[in-house]
């Protein structure tokens, strides 16, 4: 695992306008409100947070499905915001996405082989049909789907098999970065573990970099090297997996970890479960956005936005306590 930065995100913002009449003051949902982080080549970066914290929007900003308002997304040294639509095509090939719902993300009217051949047809127009079929067969085999299924439609597969097909579709163009947005959340545990193992093996084989977006902290702990925690559009803590799970710094990270039900009846969860709910991103609290729910909130938290600071080699946190 090298320390080459593959993707570097600098102060990216995305505010979605709320539709209001022309005369009223415009309101925005601050989905992503200035975040910065980087992912190294061959690494898995886990992005966690509650619903509405902006983790999916972040994923989409990186691969250009949504354009950011401000900030830079630098992929392999190239600022993606400066690219024209035409130039984007070459970069789309290098970053692919796996979505949550394998029932909705595969076209129900296309055969498996057509689903997988379509990206090849678009990006390698000179490839012969025979070559394409061979590539598809090879990759499907690596993803655990036998070539016997090539002519089937998605509805003939189970959820786990569909997710394998989605993974194969993401890998067919030999991307460098895979953005997996809740890729295993819709699956049963026994299938979830199969898919997680598959993703880990494929990562080794193809030297892939993952941005793994999930609300499930145990899954993130299993697969990630580094983890970022988001709250209301901001990153509040970024650290190596070891640091964040053994020694979380931000009070929000602490309470998130304490909320996970442990599959072990002898462990009693401490009841520091967070009070209240995540505030609306269209009208976030002033200062530190977490101060309304924070058990350790001080006066300064209501006024001043905490800046991300480096605690040590492995850990960064945005909190006035440090």
């Amino acid at each position: 695992m090298g320390n080459n930065v593959l993707i570097d995100i600098k102060d990216v913002k995305k505010h979605f306008p709320l539709s209001k009449s022309w005369f009223e003051e415009k309101q925005y949902v601050k989905a992503v409100d200035g975040i910065s982080f980087s992912i190294n080549q061959g690494e898995t970066f886990g992005l966690v947070g509650e619903s509405g914290c902006g983790k999916s929007t972040t994923g989409r900003l990186i691969n250009g499905l949504i354009k950011s308002d401000t900030g830079e997304v630098i992929f392999n040294g190239k600022d993606l915001a400066s690219l024209s639509e035409k130039q984007w095509k070459a970069y789309r090939k290098k970053m692919q996405m796996i979505f949550q719902d394998p029932y909705a993300s595969l076209s129900p009217r296309m055969k498996v082989k057509d689903i997988l051949m379509e990206p090849l047809t678009i990006h390698f127009p000179r490839m012969s049909k025979q070559e394409k079929i061979e590539t598809v067969k090879n990759l499907l085999d690596k993803c655990g789907i036998s070539e016997f299924h090539l002519n089937k439609y998605p509805h003939e597969f189970s959820g786990g098999q569909r997710q394998r097909i989605s993974i194969a579709r993401a890998l067919i163009l030999q991307p460098e970065l895979i953005i997996a947005d809740e890729a295993v959340s819709a699956l049963d545990v026994s299938i979830q573990s199969q898919i997680l193992n598959l993703m880990k093996n494929l990562q080794k084989e193809f030297n892939l970099t993952y941005l793994f977006i999930s609300h499930d902290l145990s899954v993130v702990e299993h697969i990630s090297d580094r983890v970022g925690v988001m709250y209301l559009g901001n990153l509040i803590e970024v650290a190596s997996k070891q640091s964040i799970f053994k020694d979380p710094k931000h009070p929000y990270t602490k309470s998130l970890l304490a909320s996970i039900p442990q599959p072990d009846p002898s462990v009693k969860r401490e009841r520091i479960s967070l009070k209240g709910e995540i505030p609306s991103p269209s009208n976030p609290p002033t200062g530190c956005k977490f101060h309304t729910r924070c058990p350790l909130a001080m006066d300064v938290c209501k006024e001043k936005v905490p800046i991300m600071q480096k605690l040590n080699e492995n850990q960064q946190v945005a909190c006035h306590l440090y």
Binding site: Q192, Q194, N197, H222
Partner: peptide, 19 residues
């Protein structure tokens, strides 16, 4: 099959096949 925090396993146990 459940990933356990702090287990540090490289590979998860998985039940082959499906229901």
């Amino acid at each position: 099959s459940i990933p356990k925090i702090g287990a540090g396993l490289d590979e998860l146990y998985s039940i082959p096949g499906a229901v």
